Simulated scan of single mutants.
Amino acid sequence: MQTKHFLKALFQTGVAAVRGDAAVAKALERTPIQTPHQIIAVGKAATAMALAAHARFPDTPLLIVTKYDHADGAPASAEVIEAAHPVLDDNSLRAGARIGEVVRTMGKGSHLLLLVSGGASALAEDPSEGLDLAGLKERAEQLLASGADIHAMNSARKQMSRIKGGKLLAGFKGAQVTTLAISDVEGDSLAVIGSGIGDAAAEVPFAFSPQIVASNAIARAAVADASRTQGVPVQTNDETLYDDIHTLAPRLGAILRDGAPGVHVFGGEPTVVLPENPGRGGRNQALALLLAREIAGRNDIRILVAGTDGTDGPTDAAGAIVDGQIWDASGEEALARADAGTWLEARGALLKTGPTGTNVMDLVIALKS
């Protein structure tokens, strides 16, 4: 068995199980809804989610807000706004204003279908009074560099926004909102996904039907099933990647070194504290390099670490695949500079998938022989 190809195939199977188009299509098949008067899709998986909704409701107006280079294949009739992630830009503000305008102007008796996925926090924003783009970017960069987890970041974002934390739907005057969301947060809470852009207040004057249609757990289950189908046992399947990468790496390393042969799957979203003027790479690339150090000298373990959305931080790589032979002392300097991406690319270890049409946090998939 070529372990690198096997790990890639497992990752792709996990991602396919939670793609936006498949997840939305299944949800609409399982729980049919009345034809909406407007569809809004926002997030890194917005285009894929929108395609499934458009296939079901081809005559409904469609607004898509997504990351740059993530709109390929969008319906020709859709209004599309692409913006920056993870640090917002002018288009993020244009997108936030446009979404707010569309929701506020929907008529009495109308039905809104809202499709939400991770990344919406940066891709669409309407800042609170007294904040401008420069102030929002400064605060976003501070949060990203601080190592704050997604809950802390989204709590701060809600305070800075007119459309997050249920505020968007507070302006809806219609009769019904259906929110279908892909979860990229621990606990799969709609109040946290996209900083609550698709959530509603506890009491609203309209019918509100929210549903989580894809999650990290679903992706991990698909990985585990695919592994067993290939005759490889699954020894670990946990959603435990909720800590700083420097804390996680030795913990995962010990599990892999001491664990039984087979596939070990972990999910979640680690955090990382960045130095001033960091190099290239995201949390997954940094964690992969740390894990390479943990298994240095071993010839029986190979590890894939990647973001299910196909990107890792401000890079075009999803993550990396490492083994026990790749590590050398120069990795220490790369870690100190937060430049794991450059180090891994020089050794042919980066994993590049392109946009995947989903976003359910990150996966670590390890094979021990």
Rank of each mutant, 00 (worst) to 15 (best):
Q2T: 08
T3N: 10
F6V: 07
K8D: 09
F11T: 04
G20K: 02
K26H: 13
R30P: 00
T31Y: 11
I39F: 06
T60N: 04
T60P: 06
L62T: 06
L62C: 14
V65F: 02
K67T: 14
Y68V: 01
D69Q: 06
P75T: 09
A78C: 09
A84Q: 06
D90C: 02
S92V: 00
S92R: 00
R94Q: 13
I99V: 15
G100M: 12
E101C: 11
V102F: 06
R104F: 06
R104Q: 14
T105P: 03
L113A: 06
L114W: 00
V116D: 02
V116C: 07
G118A: 15
G130S: 13
G135A: 10
A140Q: 15
L144M: 14
L144C: 06
A145E: 10
G147W: 11
A152M: 07
N154S: 09
S155G: 13
R162A: 12
T178L: 07
T179C: 10
T179N: 12
L180D: 01
L180P: 03
D184H: 08
G187P: 05
S189Y: 10
L190R: 07
G196P: 02
D199M: 08
A200F: 04
A202H: 12
A202M: 11
F206P: 08
Q211I: 05
I212V: 15
I212P: 07
S215I: 03
S215K: 08
A217I: 03
V223Y: 03
A224E: 02
S227P: 08
R228D: 05
V234T: 11
N237E: 01
N237G: 00
E239H: 05
T240C: 15
A249P: 06
A249I: 02
A254D: 15
G259V: 03
G259E: 06
G259D: 12
V263C: 03
G268P: 00
P278Q: 01
G279R: 05
G282H: 07
L291D: 09
R293E: 14
I295Y: 10
A296K: 11
G297R: 11
R298H: 12
I303A: 06
L304D: 04
V305A: 11
D309I: 05
P314E: 12
I321K: 03
D323K: 12
I326N: 03
G331K: 08
L335F: 11
A336N: 13
D339G: 13
A340P: 08
W343N: 06
E345W: 08
A349F: 05
P355Y: 01
T358M: 07
T358V: 04
T358Y: 08
K368C: 05
